[in-house]
Nucleic acid binder design. Structure first.
Length: 581
DNA sequence: GCCGTTTTCGGCCCGACTGTTTTCAGTCG
C-alpha cells in the first residue's frame, strides 16, 4: 500500500515543478514514475530493502533515493521544501479546465489569487481582462470552467460509460459519409472509471459528423468545435470528445486515441529509433515522409515489428517488453466463459424467479450457472433459512430435468460472520455444489480482523470462492483493509478462487489486485452478482477487468466445463476434510 | 529525472483547438 503514498507524492512534485515552470521532461519523469508505482505488484518496502528499486521502469538513482527516504523516514524533504515555496491553493486552480500552470502562476503573481472562490470573484469584477493575454472571451471561459468543476465532474463507472457510448455512436452513424465509428480512450481499455468519453469516426465528410454531434439532443454545450475534432458536454454532464479522420488513417488514429498516453509515448520513441514517425494519420519514414502504415491498427504495431497488443493492457506496465519477446499472454475472451458463479433470484434479493433466471442464463450459451441467494443472517437481503435453502436445492434439481444440456448448480452466497464463522453449518454447505463466502458486515474492522475472517473462511473446506474480496463500491464505499498477501497465500494453499465481481460499481478484485492474485498462484473467477437479468451482460465488463489483469482462460475457474468444475470443488473438500491445510 | 541497436550526454511524442496574436503560446489529450 505504501507505493500509492509515494506515487501521490511524486505526482505532487510534478504539479509543484510544473507551477514553477521547470523542465517539462523532468516533470514527465516524476509523472511516469508515479504511474508505474501505482501499478506495481511487488512490495515496495521489500524492493527497497533488497536494493531493487531501479528495476522499476522510470526509477533511476535519484527517485530510488527518494523512495528509500520515504520508506525510512515517512517523508520526502524535497516535497516539503517545494510546498513551502508554492501557495497551497494553487492545486485547486489547476483543476479548472483551461487553467494550466502558466495561467495559475499569472493569476497568483498579478492578482494574488490562490483559490477558486477568489478567482470567481475576480472574474465577476472583470479584473482578469486587465491581465496580459486576457480578454473577455478568456475570462468567460474561466467562469465556465469554474462552473464545470463545481458541478463535480465525477468519473463514470464502466457500465454507464458503455451505455452512453452506444447512444452517441448511434447518433454519429446517422451522419452522411460515415464509414465507421468506434470507442477509443480509457473506455476501450476498459478502465474501471471513465472521465471523458472518446470516440473516433472515419468519414469523408468530417463536418457532417461534427454537426451530428453538436446538434444531438443529448448535447447541452459545445466546448470546442473544429473541422476534425469537437468536444461537447452532455445533458448528464459528461464530456464527449469526437475525432474524425479519413478511412486510410483510421487504424493509426484508433491506436493513437486508445492510449494510454504512456503506451503511445513508448511506441513513438521506438519509432524514432527506427527512423519512423507515428502520428494519428499513420506511420511515416522520417527521411522521405513516405507513409508505411495507417489503415489498420495491426499495421502500426507491425511497423515496429511488434504483434498487435490488446487495448486492455496498453498501460506501459510490461506489455511492450512482452510483445518484443513474443510472450504476450492469450487474454480471456467472453466466449471462453462457460458459466456464471454468482446469480441471485427473488428467493432472496434478486428480482426474477428461479425459472426465468435459468432460461436467461441458458440463452447466454453457458453450460451452467450457480444460484447463489443470500444466507440467513443477511436479513435486509431476504437471506434464506436452512429450510428455505433445502427447498431451493430440491426446486433446482427438479428444474434441471427440464433444462437439457444447460444445468443449474446449487449454491449460496454465505455471509462470513464477524468472527469468521460461516452463516450455515458445514453439514448444510456440504449439500451445495458451490459455496461463495462474502463479507457484508463489519466493514470498519481492522486489517488484522478482516484478514482473519477471510482466511478462516478460505480454510473452510466447503468454501469454493470469496466474492468481492475488498467490499468496495466505486464512488460510495472505500474497500475494507485486507492483507492481500496473507489472503492470497491461503487461497493458493487451499485451492479457493477469488472473484472478479463484474458489477460495474464493484469490479472487485480490481485489475491490479487480480494480477497480483494470479502472480501469487491463485485461481480467479469472473461472475456477475446478478440481481436483475439485464445484469447478466455485465460478464463482458468482468472479462475486461480480467484482461487488464493479463489473465487468460487457464487462469479463470469458470472457463472449466461443468464436470471439471465439480472435480475442482471436490478436490478442495477432500483435502480440507482430511486436514491437509 | 531517465536512459542507451546513434548516445554516459543530449535527447526526451505529436498534433488540434482556442484566444489573442499577425506568427504563437497555452492547454489538452
Amino acid at each position: 500500500m505504501r507505493q500509492h503514498e509515494i506515487a501521490a507524492l511524486f505526482s505532487q512534485i510534478a504539479d509543484l515543478l510544473e507551477f514553477r515552470g521547470e523542465n517539462p521532461f523532468r516533470i514527465r519523469a516524476y509523472r511516469r514514475a508515479a504511474q508505474n508505482l501505482e501499478s506495481l505488484t511487488d512490495d515496495i518496502e521489500r524492493m527497497a530493502a533488497e536494493d531493487r528499486l531501479q528495476e522499476i521502469p522510470g526509477i533511476g538513482q535519484d527517485l530510488a533515493a527518494k523512495i528509500r527516504e520515504y520508506v525510512s523516514t515517512g517523508a520526502i524533504q524535497a516535497v516539503e521544501r517545494l510546498r513551502r515555496e508554492v501557495p497551497a491553493g494553487i492545486f485547486e486552480l489547476l483543476e479548472i479546465p483551461g487553467v494550466g500552470p502558466k495561467t495559475a502562476k499569472l493569476l497568483y503573481e498579478r492578482l494574488r489569487i490562490t483559490s477558486v472562490p477568489q478567482l470567481a470573484k475576480a472574474a465577476r469584477a472583470h479584473q482578469l481582462c486587465k491581465l496580459p493575454g486576457f480578454q473577455e472571451k478568456k475570462e468567460h471561459n474561466i467562469v465556465r470552467g469554474i462552473r464545470i468543476i463545481r458541478q463535480g465532474r465525477e468519473r463514470m463507472h464502466l457500465g454507464a460509460a458503455l451505455a452512453l457510448s452506444r447512444q452517441v455512436i448511434e447518433r454519429l452513424r446517422e451522419a452522411p459519409g460515415v464509414k465507421r465509428v468506434e470507442v477509443a480512450g480509457s473506455l476501450r481499455r476498459m478502465k474501471e472509471t471513465i472521465g471523458d468519453l472518446d470516440l473516433l469516426a472515419a468519414s469523408t465528410q468530417p463536418l457532417r459528423v461534427m454537426k451530428a454531434l453538436t446538434t444531438a439532443p443529448f448535447c447541452a454545450q459545445v466546448l470546442a468545435s473544429g473541422s476534425t475534432k469537437s468536444s461537447i458536454m452532455t445533458t448528464d454532464g459528461v464530456q464527449v470528445d469526437v475525432r474524425v479522420v479519413a478511412p486510410e488513417s483510421f487504424g493509426a488514429a484508433w491506436q493513437y486515441f486508445t492510449g494510454s498516453k504512456e503506451h503511445n509515448v513508448r511506441l513513438r520513441e521506438m519509432a524514432v529509433r527506427r527512423g519512423l514517425k507515428i502520428n494519428e494519420y499513420g506511420v511515416f519514414r522520417l527521411a522521405t515522409g513516405a507513409r508505411v502504415a495507417g489503415r489498420d491498427e495491426e499495421d502500426i504495431y507491425r511497423a515496429l515489428e511488434l504483434p498487435w497488443i490488446p487495448p486492455e493492457i496498453r498501460e506501459d506496465t510490461g506489455e511492450i517488453e512482452a510483445a518484443m519477446q513474443k510472450r504476450l499472454p492469450r487474454l480471456l475472451e467472453l466466449g471462453d466463459i462457460k458459466g456464471d458463479f454468482h446469480v441471485h433470484t427473488n428467493r432472496s434479493d434478486g428480482r426474477h424467479p428461479l425459472e426465468e433466471v435459468a432460461q436467461a442464463c441458458k440463452r447466454r450459451g453457458y453450460q451452467y450457472a450457480v444460484i447463489t441467494d443470500h444466507s440467513k443472517s443477511l436479513k435486509v437481503a431476504g437471506g434464506l433459512t436452512e429450510a428455505e435453502l433445502r427447498r431451493l436445492i430440491s426446486d433446482i434439481r427438479a428444474l434441471n430435468g427440464k433444462l437439457g444440456r444447460f444445468q443449474l448448480l446449487t449454491g449460496s452466497e454465505v455471509d462470513i460472520l464477524a468472527e469468521g464463522r460461516m452463516d450455515y453449518p458445514n453439514e448444510m454447505l456440504a449439500q451445495l455444489d458451490f459455496v461463495i463466502g462474502s463479507i457484508h458486515s463489519g466493514f470498519k474492522q481492522s486489517q488484522a480482523t478482516i484478514t482473519n475472517r477471510l482466511v478462516k473462511a478460505i480454510r473452510n473446506p466447503y468454501v469454493t470462492m470469496i466474492a468481492h474480496p475488498t467490499g468496495r463500491l466505486l464512488g460510495q464505499r472505500e474497500p475494507y483493509e485486507v492483507d492481500f498477501e496473507a489472503v492470497f497465500q491461503a487461497a493458493r494453499e487451499t485451492g479457493t478462487a477469488m472473484e472478479i465481481n463484474a458489477y460495474p460499481k464493484r469490479l472487485d478484485l480490481n485489475d491490479v489486485a487480480a494480477r497480483k492474485a494470479h502472480e501469487a498462484g491463485v485461481m480467479l473467477a469472473v461472475s456477475t452478482d446478478t440481481h436483475s437479468l439485464d445484469q447478466l451482460t455485465d460478464m463482458a465488463i468482468g472479462v475486461g477487468v480480467a484482461r487488464r489483469a493479463w489473465l487468460g482462460p487457464r487462469d479463470i475457474l469458470n472457463c472449466l466445463s461443468r464436470d471439471q468444475l465439480l472435480a475442482w470443488v471436490r478436490q478442495k473438500r477432500k483435502k480440507g476434510t482430511q486436514n491437509k491445510f
